[in-house]
Every structure is written in structure tokens, then in C-alpha cells.
Nucleic acid binder design. Sequence first.
DNA 1: CCATTTTCTTGACTCGTTCCAGAAAGCGCG
DNA 2: CGCGCTTTCTGGAACGAGTCAAGAAAATGG
Lengths: 144, 144
Amino acid sequence: MTPADDFPQLLRGAGLRVTRPRVAVLGAVHSHPHADTESIIGAVRADLPEVSHQAVYDSLHTLTAAGLVRRIQPTGSVARYESRVEDNHHHVVCRSCGAIADVDCAVGHAPCLTASDDSGFVVDEAEVIYWGRCPSCAIAPARQ
Amino acid sequence: MTPADDFPQLLRGAGLRVTRPRVAVLGAVHSHPHADTESIIGAVRADLPEVSHQAVYDSLHTLTAAGLVRRIQPTGSVARYESRVEDNHHHVVCRSCGAIADVDCAVGHAPCLTASDDSGFVVDEAEVIYWGRCPSCAIAPARQ
DNA sequence: CCATTTTCTTGACTCGTTCCAGAAAGCGCG
DNA sequence: CGCGCTTTCTGGAACGAGTCAAGAAAATGG
């Protein structure tokens, strides 16, 4: 669907050097949405067994700064990454098992971006996290 | 304004034992909105110089679980606590200096609570974080 | 193919938070 | 008012995600 699976091209387009670790990280984030850093390290090492964790951390930072990847971190979770960027979507997080799913906000455009009183802040983004229970955990008797 | 500054009463009402550390922590959170754990430890030790950090961590967890205090943790920040609970307000966070301010959502009631497609999740809360720059940082030339 | 600049490897280290065992304090009851 | 049970607190070790730093390796432009 996206012509964007040409990762080297994506990197170049963002003005970044094309390195094997970066390509692999970009690929891992694309194929494992909402994965944490450790999972990404694992996925990357399937291709490049010798990458250091530092290379992955660096790549994730660089990619995030370049806007090729988005970092999310719900309260109580470690950092997670996803490849859907610039499309103003949000997340539902399961309180019980931590599962994360994408949600397109009911309001088609930027949701709630107009705070009633912004205290003088210049707001450029509204991040919404819905908390609840995923289908499986909703069925299972609450154990917490 | 709130008859709720009787902290021991608040604790008892929540079915919790009244201990000096808990009362002090509750007081610290009330007087230092959005403070992180370290600041709270400092504030608590102004009254009780000998409290262990663990007592503060335990109290914060207990108070959070009891709903007397709310924990927030914007991406990239450590845990912070506030005493406004159950009133459905949100936060603006400064990307530059990390300052946090309260915001009442434009929609008077639960904002965006109806996700367009909730993937089968049972949603009970929508948490909104607005990102931008606080008044001071908006004036200062962007240095990041 | 070379030089320059950026990125990666390795390994130590920081910092917020949690775990643990024993001592202390709160609460219900007589 | 004091006893005993249970919860909480103290002190200190431990943990884990993430960062820092120095030198080796690889990308890009010529």
C-alpha cells in the first residue's frame, strides 16, 4: 500500500545516512507496531545478529527526531514505537495486559486541539490515550 | 474551598490507615501540584525529616490506588502526582522546559470518550495531553 | 579510492523505582 | 487503657531502561 517500504529511500528523503542498523530498525518498527525497545532489538538481530543495543537506541532517537517513527509511552510503560506518523491517530491501552491498539479519533481532524484555557501555552499537538480493557481481559474476571 | 483538607479524614474515608507519612504525602501533593516523587520526598521531609523514600513511594501508590491522588507521566518525564481527581481535566506540557498546567477540556464532559473504533476495548477513561511551549519558552528563541 | 564526518561497538554508569527482611506503628477488641 | 494482629515503615540492596564516552568502523562527496 505505501510506496514507503523502501526504507533506504525514506532515510535519504529525511536527510539521514543509510546504514544497515537504521534500515533494520525501520523495518522492525513497521512490522511490529507498538513494540518496545527490547522487542525491536530482538527483531533487528534476526537480520543483523551483531547490532548493539546502543545502535538501536540511537537509530530510534534519530528516526523519531526525523519524524519517520513515533514514540509513545503510556503511563507505567516503557517506550514504544510505531510507524504511523502524521495521521493524527490515537491509542487505546488495556489496563490489565498493556495491549495497545490504534484509534482514529471520532472527530476526523485534530481532536480537542482547542483547549478551553491553554494558560498561554502554544499548543501544537493533542495526544489522546484511552484507558480500558482489551476484549480478552474484559471477558476474564478482573483479577486486579 | 474543599472541606477535604482534613487529610486524616480523607484517608479514613478511603478505608486507609492514618499514618504520619501518608498525611504528609497527601499534604505535599495538595500543595505542590504536578510535583515528581523526589520533590514530594523533599516536601514531606520538611515535616518528617526521617521518612524513608520507600514510605513515600508506598504512600503514593496507596493513595493513587485509593483515588485520592492522580498519577501522570507524560512521555519522557518521571512520575508526577496531583490532587485534583475525578474532575476530568487534562494537561498541557511544555516540550522545552517540561512545565505542566491544568486544562479543562473544551467539551465540558468526558472528551473524545467515544472513539470511532474502539477495537472491542471497554474504555473507561480518556487522557489528553496537549504538547506545546509554555509562555516563557514560547518567547525565548527555540534552543532545541 | 580517499578524506571527512557520522555512526556503531563495547562497556561502564546513572537514576527512578522496586524488592526484601526486620522493626515500628495503627487499629479493633476486651 | 493495654494486647495482639496486621499493615506500614526503615534501611539497604538490587533492578532495568536508558545514557555517556572513547575508539573503531562505515557512509557520503569528491
